[in-house]
Design a binder for these strands. Structure first.
Lengths: 234, 234
DNA sequence: TGAATACAGTTTGTATACTAAGAGCGTTTT
DNA sequence: AAAACGCTCTTAGTATACAAACTGTATTCA
């Protein structure tokens, strides 16, 4: 193993715990760190070139967000993603998505629209380049820009945590298709933008609903597919 | 066979941070610790008889829940509750409350109903005794029992964080009326229980909506009341 | 007199040291 | 030979030590 640490030379005081938190969070959400994988405090400290203290702070924050599970006196592991709760997840996502997108259509201002456009632009770019990880991230940013345009922090915060949870499932889903990206996602986003720009709340909610149901359908199809049917077991 | 560790009272290791977290959380939500009040790590460590390490862990977890704000290199303070966002808060609470209570009416089982009944019993007791802090806590437990009966962890978790946030506002509200408790709250809860027991989803949602709107109306009336109108300034 | 700076005190952020709780493995005891 | 005991090793939880940043005050200089 390389002894190369990720320690930054400037290391502003009070930022190292935050730095580790964001780095680990990104690796967990992008599935570079798989569910169930143990996280050792000492090796993390070595990797980031700090002591265990900021590492522990980062782990506590990750645990508070449900991204890792702390086994008392043993280790902390990447939180498993329980696929069996997927229908419930979609129900919750659908509700919050409809609510935020409907409110956004009513309450959005010019600055909100500009933010949304920018996110969509970056999303489109990621799809074009076939960068799945970036696409998932930009997709989340796009919907969060809309949620912020709803001007309801409470709904936006709940919605954000659901989108976080979903990033790992989406990663799993696209990975199963060798990371090919369907370009119709861009069109769907464009339609949502149009509804919000025209302040058509009913249409925005309806499109948000279709969008979440589409995710549900696609993922359930993927789950129903037998990936081992071509393998002879006897 | 492993030993029954629950029986041994010396399970202290690994619990002190959790103990401090729960104690501080309760004091914040019950407004014993007022918004804006600074929390000093050293005095907290002295108070709980531990070092700063578990205290810091508790503070980090509280910060993750939004109950305290960490000012870098300075202090952590109890998070201010921003009354100006109250209408947005009620919007969010209303949405999640309707969703969870509707789902609960459809999906509840006998164990759920027993839990809800127990919470309502404890809530009634607190109202009878005029114990406002206990009443607010039991009210939250009652609605969370219903949310758990919805069998959707994602919605329940979002709803729980909103109820947490609301505990402080409710405390503020009742304190302004010298902690007198209106007994009709018990009746409203009983009606909700009836709808859920009868699996009347529409009624359960409707009652949940009325319930949240009632909180909104009462609180806005309270906010609109001029508490200084009897004081001559000139 | 007023502003700027240096100094001291306080408190957080990080590093390190110490302790206890499990996990693995070998030895001992029937 | 099998189960129980104990040894060691690893790792998390806690305590303590040290360093950096912010606050306030007092002194100095214009």
């Amino acid at each position: 193993m390389s002894k190369n640490t990720e320690a930054t030379p400037k290391r502003t005081r009070g930022e190292s715990a935050n730095r580790i938190f964001k780095a680990l969070r990104e690796e967990i959400l992008s599935m570079q760190l798989g569910p169930g994988q143990p996280l050792d405090e000492v090796s993390l400290a070595e990797r980031f070139g700090v002591s265990r203290s900021p590492v522990r702070e980062a782990l506590v924050r990750l645990a508070a967000q449900g991204l890792v599970n702390t086994l008392p006196n043993k280790s902390t592991i990447i939180a498993p993603l329980n696929i069996e709760e997927f229908p419930q997840y979609i129900d919750a996502l659908d509700l919050l998505q409809r609510a935020t997108h409907r409110l956004a259509a009513t309450l959005r201002n010019d600055a909100d629209l500009a933010d949304i456009d920018l996110c969509q632009q970056q999303f489109t770019q990621a799809v074009k380049e076939g960068d799945v990880v970036a696409m998932i991230e930009r997709n989340q940013a796009f919907h969060m820009a809309i949620a912020n345009a709803s001007h309801n922090n409470y709904l936006a915060k709940s919605y954000a945590s659901l989108l976080d949870e979903g990033r790992r499932i989406l990663r799993l889903y696209f990975r199963s298709y060798n990371d090919t990206l369907p370009p119709e996602l861009v069109v769907e986003h464009d339609r949502i933008i149009g509804a919000i720009r025209n302040q058509d709340a009913d249409l925005a909610e309806s499109l948000a609903h279709e969008h979440s149901q589409e995710v549900k359908t696609r993922f359930l199809e993927y789950m129903a597919t037998s990936h081992t049917s071509g393998i002879k077991v006897i």
